[in-house]
Design a protein around this nucleic acid. Structure first.
Length: 509
RNA sequence: GGCCCCAUCGUCUAGUGGCUUAGGACGCCGGGUUCUCAGUCCGGUAACACGGGUUCAAAUCCCGUUGGGGUCACCA
């Protein structure tokens, strides 16, 4: 292993031509893991040679997503659009050495040749016509302003083998590449494979870890590196992340951009845990790992050779798991923005006046409920969220789960109040019982509420007869937290009000 | 179609020639738990693609078949 004693340097090289997606996230993560595990360096390189399609906003999306995952880079971002001189220098050198040449064939000519080859069932191939152009003819064509591209001269027939760190020995033959391929356009602006080979060398990359969709680019890059007399880095081609139809994960499979996962309320630690386990496994039976544990255990040897389907149900499970394990205060803080954007809660900075001895003005967040104009404490929000911590899979579910704590009136169908075969009269009686029990409490004590109400409900045999309408009257939902918890958090006054509203609802026809 | 890669439950995977009646997790199904939902606990369902070898012994090694995927731009 020629790289054994060199400091490990890896790169993540996305092109900013679209929103950052799950597949790229996994490639970035694996590079990062490999770098950290081996005490090496992780470089971010933006491949924006295609000026038409590259956008600055996408570049920002890449960095924002990486930050979110906790994937930090040690160098960069380098931009290929800012390194044109470097590429041109190498390009000119190759042309001078006769390893690359101008090609004046028009697109039409190329198409025609390709068509003929296809008819003869031969693979399409550029035969290298312009390679044999005489100097004088070439000079003349350039002077005439004829359009051209630059092609790399490649061997006719040569084995191109390399040892992939994940896939093992990979064999290509130069004759299958399709002839001398284009490395620069007419304005001498260089193309992907060329700049990639140069940057990997100039940036002293020791390991190229990327998706296996780049496997077929590798022989081209090796040829370029050879022509330039560069040492080749080691390659590791990761199996792809797949959609449910087993094809490469893409937009048509639904949510693929990281932004969507952030908005839906996936936790970065859950997301990272999940995608790390797609195509990598440290052995053993544990499946929950922090980023630090993943780094500590990571090895390319434990990477799967075949693609892994992105199964969102397992991600949801892991996300729910992390939510349950989280400190409730932290969870509440993460949920608050969702309540705010749903209009259920509003926050603002409150200027609390402290005596000058305490350092003067200390800004503090205060919370209001728009529906009732009430003030609400952070502790109260924590209480509400704690009722749903075990039930939540996504942070974005918050608003639909707890909205009834922030609304003045809950909206539901009258029929929802009926437990199993119970009729209107019976339901009404049970709700009235609840009212009388709840208003009789001298002190407001949670376990007392629960004990007394439970006893009362038990008298009728089937507890559901009383507890179901009670819970529905308070939450307005067919599924919610338990009635005692809701009563406790809602308080006596609001509880009674909602029970009375429910009874009125029953009276109406 | 050419070239390249891949192949264990529906999904993610453990398994590196005998410890395997193939283990775990998600999902699904059933049951327990203060009305519901969730959670939790208990139980269940379900896989080595196929055919040849090699070997005393193969999910594991070799070959072939089939199937799947990737890639074939003056995009990256």
């Amino acid at each position: 292993m020629k790289n054994k004693f060199k400091k490990v340097r890896v790169r993540f090289a996305p092109s900013p031509t679209g929103l950052f997606h799950v597949g790229s996230a996994r490639t970035a993560l694996f590079n990062f893991l490999f770098a950290r595990k081996n005490r090496g360096e992780f470089i971010l390189r933006i491949e924006d040679t295609d000026r038409e399609r590259s956008k600055r906003e996408y570049e920002e999306d890449i960095m924002r997503s990486l930050d979110w995952m906790g994937v930090s880079w040690d160098e960069g971002p380098y931009r290929q659009s800012e390194r044109k001189e470097v590429y041109r220098k190498h390009l000119l050198r190759l042309i001078e050495e006769g390893k690359a040449y101008y090609c004046f064939c028009t697109k039409k000519q190329l198409e025609g040749a390709k068509e003929k080859q296809r008819k003869r069932k031969e693979p399409p191939r550029y035969e290298g016509k312009c390679f044999s152009l005489s100097n004088t003819k070439r000079e003349r064509l350039i002077k005439e302003g004829k359009e051209f591209v630059v092609r790399l001269r490649i061997p006719e027939d040569e084995n191109l083998e390399f040892n992939d760190r994940i896939k093992g020995k990979i064999k290509f033959n130069a004759k299958d590449i399709g002839g001398d391929f284009v490395i620069a356009k007419g304005d001498l602006s260089t193309l992907y494979n060329f700049v990639c080979a140069i940057d990997d060398h100039e940036m002293k990359i020791t390991h190229v870890i990327r998706g296996e969709d780049h496997l077929s680019n590798t022989p081209k890059q090796i040829l370029i590196q050879r022509a330039l007399k560069f040492n080749a880095p080691e390659f590791a081609h990761m199996a792809l992340t797949l959609g449910t139809d087993k094809s490469k994960l893409s937009k048509r499979h639904g949510a693929v951009s990281l932004g969507e996962y952030m908005e839906k309320g996936y936790l970065p630690e859950a997301f990272v845990n999940f995608i790390a386990l797609l195509g990598w496994h440290p052995g053993g039976e544990n499946e929950i790992y922090s980023l630090d544990e993943i780094i500590e255990k990571f090895s390319l040897d434990d990477c799967q050779k075949s693609g892994a389907i992105f199964d969102i149900r397992k991600l949801e499970y892991i996300n729910g798991y992390y939510i349950r394990k989280m400190k409730t205060e932290k969870l509440a803080n993460l949920c608050i923005p969702y309540l705010v954007s749903a209009g259920l809660l509003s926050t603002e900075f409150e200027e609390e006046q402290y005596p000058p001895a305490y350092g003067g003005v200390q800004p503090k967040l205060s919370y209001h409920i728009p529906a009732s104009q009430e003030k609400v404490t952070f502790d109260k929000i924590v209480e509400i969220i704690s009722l749903y911590q075990e039930r939540m899979k996504l942070l974005s579910e918050t608003k639909d789960l707890v909205d009834y704590f922030f609304l003045e009136e809950v909206d539901y169908e009258k029929n929802l109040l009926f437990w199993k075969g119970a009729g209107e009269e019976e339901t009404k009686k049970n709700l009235e019982k609840c009212i009388s029990v709840i208003s009789s409490f001298k002190k407001w004590d949670k376990s007392l509420i629960e004990k007394t109400l439970l006893k009362k409900a038990g008298e009728g045999g089937d507890r559901g007869k009383m507890l179901w309408p009670l819970r529905v009257a308070l939450s307005g939902k067919k599924a919610s937290a338990g009635p005692f918890d809701i009563i406790w958090v809602l308080g006596r006054e609001k509880t009674l009000k909602r029970l009375k509203t429910a009874i009125n609802k029953l009276k109406m026809d």
